[in-house]
Design a binder for these strands. Structure first.
Length: 572
RNA sequence: GGGCCUGUAGCUCAAUUGGUUAGAGCAGAGCGCUCAUAACGCUUUGGUUGGGGGUUCGAGUCCCUCCGGGCCUACCA
């Protein structure tokens, strides 16, 4: 039995995520986790909320709440939405947890002991009115290059020129608008990841099976310009993990916290510790997932993320682990995704453009979204959500191909044989051909799932559903019944078993519908079909079943138009 | 500016890494079926693989160039 550690990029705390965020990390991670579990692997699937940083403080201030309270509330909101989408985390943690505090401080101490931390005194812009140092992009002013008056301190969005905050004419705080700014000296810790450049390069070069998207981004950062740059891992903020060297105070760093991108990946580890605490497990129970010297040597670790997260997962976090010189588990495979766009443009959190997780669930059950999003996952390039495409896919794939198959089989049986699996008849060459085709297709499906080729897996699963309709059409039990009821019984017995098979195979994509199908078939046998012929005999003659409610309803044109209009504009 | 990705049927995507006649789904057309959510099945129309040039016995795939789309460029996360 393989042991698979799976993490999804942890969503930021400052609001509800949109479908683009969902399909880029959490949803495919869940698909893979469910598949691995179904195949009998031992799975640890972890996620969390990413709670530190300036945007969290500002969002809390805007909501008029203490930042700790705000994060606690938003964590619960996101956890509830995750449950709504049936994301099967073993634990959904918080980067602000005590476990992450301790681990982050521990890593910093180890890195310092091993010579990978450098103290750097630098100058940063301080806003007296806001009582905080301002990140570059939180400073606005007039661009010295093109005169655009809303240029940010890191880059002018109008002329795309890269800027330094001190370049701006008439700089002001983007938070308060205050012009009472001054440059102050402040000391920060830098992670000397440049010292690990060769180790990182060799490690990445060894990952020949990774998606191009992942390795090309990593190599770009490794080799661009002067090569991998050292990175500041502390900030002058109130909300965050206090800078400490292990459990010791760090002289000169009082009042500072670690940079969110330093502590966020460490939360992957801390989430396992949180899982242990929440489930009455021991320290050793979680460390056997993360320490190769404490039982994790046989663990395969797979990460899921959008492409914007790749540099941190291929360079900074591995540098943190390598620099600790501890036996922490490095990632084995990084599955990265492009962006999902919305109807001709981008999803926009600030403009409320597109569909957000809470709105999606208010419109339709999660399976509808899971199916569309996963079968259109932006693997090879950015992809686009349109309501027309969503409507067509849901109606055709889910309602017509799968849902109607369940409906026609169960209703035909009920009317001719009653609500139990009929006896009699025997399997012939047509049935054997179906079994052969399914055997081939299920093998292909498994290959795609193992390779985390999400769209290909979805296409193969759909073809497996179609095979049932093809079989039924050619076997035509409604005709056979007139002359040979026993043979019609054999056809329907096989078809009822197909429903159970489909429930098992489809569960990673559409868990609720799969559960409904199993319930209708009155079985709890959801064993993965290693032998298709055998799997199609599980429901034996005399076994009772029920006709389920419509599995998937169709989306009407009027609804689609209504939603189209509702989500084009500003989120109310 | 630099780098990376991308462009294949009306739409969404494949094509075993250079190898027969470029394939699926949806949409369109025709036929069949009547168990079923007006569902299902079969057949079928549709391509100068963005344009041009080159390498090769052979190019969707490799090289050059032009055009279009996207992403990243290190203090948002």
């Amino acid at each position: 039995m393989a042991r698979i550690l799976i993490t999804s990029a942890i969503p930021y705390i400052n609001g509800i995520k949109h479908l683009g965020n969902l399909v880029g990390s959490q949803l495919p991670a869940d698909l893979y986790a469910r598949y691995c579990r179904a195949r009998g692997d031992e799975v640890m699937f972890l996620c969390a909320t990413d709670e530190h940083g300036t945007p969290a403080e500002l969002a809390a201030a805007k909501a008029g709440k203490p930042v700790a309270d705000y994060c606690a509330e938003m964590h619960e909101v996101q956890a509830e939405l995750a449950r709504g989408f049936r994301l099967s985390f073993d634990h959904f943690g918080r980067s602000s947890s005590p476990q992450n505090h301790a681990l982050t401080q521990y890593f910093a101490g180890r890195l310092a002991d091993n010579g990978y931390i450098q103290e750097v005194t630098e100058k940063q812009v301080f806003s007296k009115a806001d009582d905080r140092f301002l990140p570059d992009r939180y400073i606005e002013g007039t661009c010295p290059n093109c005169g655009y008056d809303k240029a940010r301190g890191d880059q002018c969005e109008n002329c795309t020129k890269q800027l330094d905050p001190t370049d701006l004419i008439d700089p002001r705080s983007a938070i308060s608008g205050s012009t009472d700014l001054e440059v102050r000296e402040t000391k920060h810790l830098y992670l000397r990841q440049s010292l690990l450049k060769d180790d990182l390069a060799a490690w990445i070069d060894s990952k020949t099976d990774w998606p191009v998207l992942t390795t090309s981004i990593a190599k770009k950062w490794l080799n661009d310009g002067d090569g991998l740059q050292d990175r500041g891992i502390t900030r002058d903020l109130h909300w965050g993990i206090p800078v400490k060297k292990g459990t010791q105070d760090w002289p000169g760093m009082q009042g500072k916290v670690f940079y969110v991108w330093f502590d966020a990946p460490i939360e992957y580890i801390a989430a396992a510790a949180e899982w242990a605490e929440a489930n009455g497990k021991t320290e050793a129970d979680w460390r056997r997932w993360w320490r190769t010297d404490e039982g994790a040597a046989d663990v395969r670790y797979v990460q899921f993320m959008g492409k914007d997260n790749v540099p941190f997962h291929t360079l900074s976090f591995p540098a943190t682990i390598m620099g600790s010189r501890d036996a922490w588990k490095l990632v084995d495979y990084i599955k990265s995704f492009n962006y999902l766009n919305y109807d001709g443009g981008q999803f926009s959190t600030s403009q409320g453009r597109g569909v957000f997780m809470d709105q999606a669930l208010a419109i339709l059950p999660s399976d509808y979204w899971r199916w569309w999003l996963l079968s259109h996952a932006p693997e090879s390039s950015d992809s686009e959500f349109t309501w027309e495409n969503f409507q067509a896919s849901v109606n055709k794939d889910l309602a017509d191909v799968l849902g109607n198959f369940v409906s026609r089989v169960t209703k035909f049986c009920r009317s001719k044989f009653g609500e139990e699996v009929p006896a009699g008849g025997s399997l012939g060459t047509r049935e054997q051909a179906l079994i052969d085709e399914l055997t081939t297709r299920v093998a292909a499906y498994q290959d795609h799932m193992a390779a985390i080729e999400v769209r290909k897996a979805a296409a193969e699963l759909r073809a497996i559903w179609v095979a049932g309709n093809e079989y039924l059409q050619s076997a035509a039990p409604w005709s056979v019944y007139k002359t040979d009821p026993e043979q019609a019984a054999a056809i329907i017995r096989l078809s009822l078993n197909l429903i159970r098979l489909y429930a098992v195979l489809s569960a990673p994509f559409i868990p609720d519908a799969s559960a409904t199908m199993l319930t209708a078939m009155a079985t709890t046998d959801d064993a993965w079909p290693d032998d298709i012929a055998q799997a199609l005999t599980v429901l034996e003659p005399g076994h009772g079943f029920s006709v389920p409610e419509i599995l998937f309803r169709k989306i009407a044109d009027e609804e689609r138009e209504d939603w189209q209009a509702r989500f084009a504009g500003v989120r109310s």
